[in-house]
Design a protein around this nucleic acid. Structure first.
Lengths: 138, 138
DNA sequence: CCATACTTGCCACACAGTTGCATTTGCAGT
DNA sequence: ACTGCAAATGCAACTGTGTGGCAAGTATGG
């Protein structure tokens, strides 16, 4: 597939820009993230990349991507981290967690920083929406 | 301590109002929750109630309290549920997660429901704030 | 006080994620 | 193209949070 190798290419470029080693695992993971419109869980990625690298490497690659600022991770109420690539927005947008299928979707709505009591040092805001996605509503 | 037994009493009343069996574990857990201004994790409760009931019972009591609508649980990014008793507010308020000490605090600020794309059925909103609490700022 | 249904304790298990360490591999410098 | 080496990977064992099964205990209505 041409589009698949296109994501592969973008992944390589991205890694090169960060002056990082270009490895099979990183390329594959990053390409999958570029190809996905919604944040992917470790489990979802593991199934798609079973023949590329093992569980632990996947964890390490994902955390590395987050440390580099290439990807960011979203916490959901099922206690599973989901990862998405920075590109499509500043990561202050809200996330919608469907408790039908368990998937997480990015929303346009942004979380506005509320005021906090004196003494607290607010550094980040995350807004999680819960309900049913269009698929599961039916 | 008089105030301790006071929470104990409120716990009993609350259980009676719900027509539920009044057991040692439920009283103790509920009393602890009444006594705390912030949501408590299973781990925190387990340490304080080690001689009252075991790990598994604690999990079951907490989930039961949530099912009854007596308590509600807050998800935090460290994959640990925290529980607090409904009383002090409608549970739409934001929660502040300190990544210094790991504690969670209830904030006054409320999360306002944003609009979501057509087809999504929004049922609940949760806002999580991250940063350092006054203790950890220093 | 008794019967019974609800709770509890203990065991083993499931699942997400991490750590240690030996092996492999990308890449810079010849 | 070859080599050295730091960085990345694979594997196994482990931690921590939470759950399920089942026998024993207990709160409550009669």
């Amino acid at each position: 597939m041409t589009d698949n190798s296109d994501f592969e290419l973008r992944a390589r470029e991205c890694l090169a820009r960060h002056g990082a080693r270009i490895t099979r695992a990183r390329c594959a993971v990053l390409a999958r993230l570029f190809a996905s419109a919604r944040p992917l869980s470790h489990h979802e990625l593991e199934q798609q990349l079973a023949d590329v690298c093992d569980r632990v490497t996947l964890y390490r690659v994902l955390n590395w991507l987050v440390d580099q600022g290439i990807a960011h991770k979203v916490s959901a109420e099922d206690r599973v981290w989901r990862f998405s690539v920075e590109s499509h927005a500043d990561h202050r947008h809200a996330h919608f967690h469907c408790h039908g299928c368990g998937m997480v979707f990015c929303m346009d709505a942004k979380a506005r920083s509320p005021s906090v009591p004196q003494g607290f040092d607010l550094q980040d805001v995350e807004m999680t929406l819960r309900g049913l996605c269009p698929e599961c509503v039916q």
